[in-house]
Design a protein around this nucleic acid. Structure first.
Lengths: 251, 251
DNA sequence: CACCATAATACCAGAGTAATACCAACATAA
DNA sequence: TTATGTTGGTATTACTCTGGTATTATGGTG
């Protein structure tokens, strides 16, 4: 499956001073992100790409290698290069903090949220400890189901100081966007994750069998100055969601 | 991505009595702040900037050095100058995230290893695909149990090309240390995390009930030049181990 | 005078790119 | 099954472009 429109010389954006191999990487990764290139789809051969784009095959290969390292492309010797992924599985990076909504959008999936509860209350001792505030201070408790194309993917609890978000009804599609709009810019987060067997209530919400394995993620998100803006817990279905961590040597 | 219009002589604000290099610094940092120059974007070459702006290359370089010191620009010798951030994700330390021994020590627990099997064999088609080698080439298959204070925590499979590690008996406490001692320095890895319900065999090894939730981690580790040095799978008990990931905010 | 800013020029080291050749693996046709 | 064509994979040589460094020279300012 070749889509000639994707790989024409004008698509390489000659105005961009970046090296050609990088521009090709960008072209392909954006086509994959937008859904124009589907998982499992074959790319034109390296020789063909070189001709179509008016660049050297070495340059094409360098781009392909980068895409392979990013996990977007799979090379099959003698057969061709293919977009990675078969049975579509949602993957979220652990290197950057993405909001669920942005993540789904970048994949051409429709993100949805079903609110289970939203309340404003006084922080109990546990909550105060989590947020680094005094017991009794006002907090916002949010509980929601996250959907992808209408299918439940995760159930989430978020706890945030009322000083950051006064009214729980104020939250739009993205909690982080709401924070930013109010001048609170999430900068760093620490996540602890492990695996659990879901109880009956969660199983029902996620529409999976009781006892199914799920990823259990606790996250503390901070502003640049270290103040805690959110403490959350998310339970992601193990059968539909992967997390990816990129590791390197040194800084 | 880059708008040629950013770098024309009239953009240098000749009415400003500040030195030219400072005016160029201002021009670039404002373009970055406004979003006109995105993280990861390439700047025109120093020579091109000098011509476009009608100034000396020395002056351009002085501005670039200032921007580098401010952390806004990254220089890549032979490649170009790029806006900082963007594709440069927060990359966590390979040794930090994946040294089981160090991790256990930091938790005040004693790490141990029990070898289940070590063999040298010819790569089947799946293994060849994972390692990017030819089917039939020699590989080393390692299977072990990871212990904390004598209690099984994880079961792991590692697959590595025999060119990297000829004799499976050579592996010391740390597989990566063994690679390094042989001149193969792991530089980057990608890990996929998901949650599974363990089967009977794994449950027996980990001494947990069949169907218990566990973290299932697949990792591909590469050398600096992109060659794959290891493909592994680890199953960590969900009730006894959690992973920590620190996240930064992307652009 | 000392220091800074700027220009022009020269050269070096590293990365990017092109053209070419050949090999290994796979796909397809006969 | 064999033969052929196409694919990715590797290597070599060569060239260009990039940032990096250095030198000499001139002008402006305190």
């Amino acid at each position: 499956m070749t889509l000639p429109g994707i790989f024409s010389p004008d698509k390489l954006n000659r105005d961009d001073p970046a090296p050609a191999y990088r521009r090709l990487q960008t072209l392909v990764s954006e086509a994959i992100a937008s859904g124009e290139l589907k998982p499992g789809a074959a790319l034109p051969s390296e020789r063909e790409l070189a001709v179509q784009l008016g660049i050297s095959r070495v340059t094409v290969r360098k781009a392909i290698v980068g895409l392979v390292e990013d996990g977007l492309i799979v090379q099959r010797h003698g057969s061709g290069n293919y977009v990675a992924g078969g049975p579509e599985r949602l993957v979220q990076s652990l290197s950057q903090l993405y909001s669920f909504t942005e993540d789904m959008k970048s994949r051409g999936r429709e993100a949805g949220t079903r609110w289970l509860s939203r309340e404003r209350a006084q922080a109990n001792a546990d909550e105060a400890g989590l947020l680094g505030i005094a017991e009794g201070e006002m907090v916002i408790r949010l509980r929601r189901l996250r959907l992808a194309d209408g299918e439940p993917i995760a159930v989430e609890w978020s706890l945030t100081p009322a000083s950051v978000l006064a009214d729980p009804q104020d939250v739009g599609a993205s909690l982080y966007e709401t924070f930013r709009a109010r001048g609170y810019k999430p900068a760093r987060a620490v996540q602890h994750f492990t695996a659990i067997n879901v109880d009956a209530e969660t199983a029902k919400l996620l529409q999976i069998p009781v006892g199914s394995a799920a990823l259990d993620i606790h996250r503390i998100t901070r502003l640049e100055d270290g103040r805690i803006v959110e403490s959350s817990r998310s339970i992601f279905r193990g059968d539909a969601y992967d997390f990816v961590a990129e590791l390197g040597i040194g800084a």
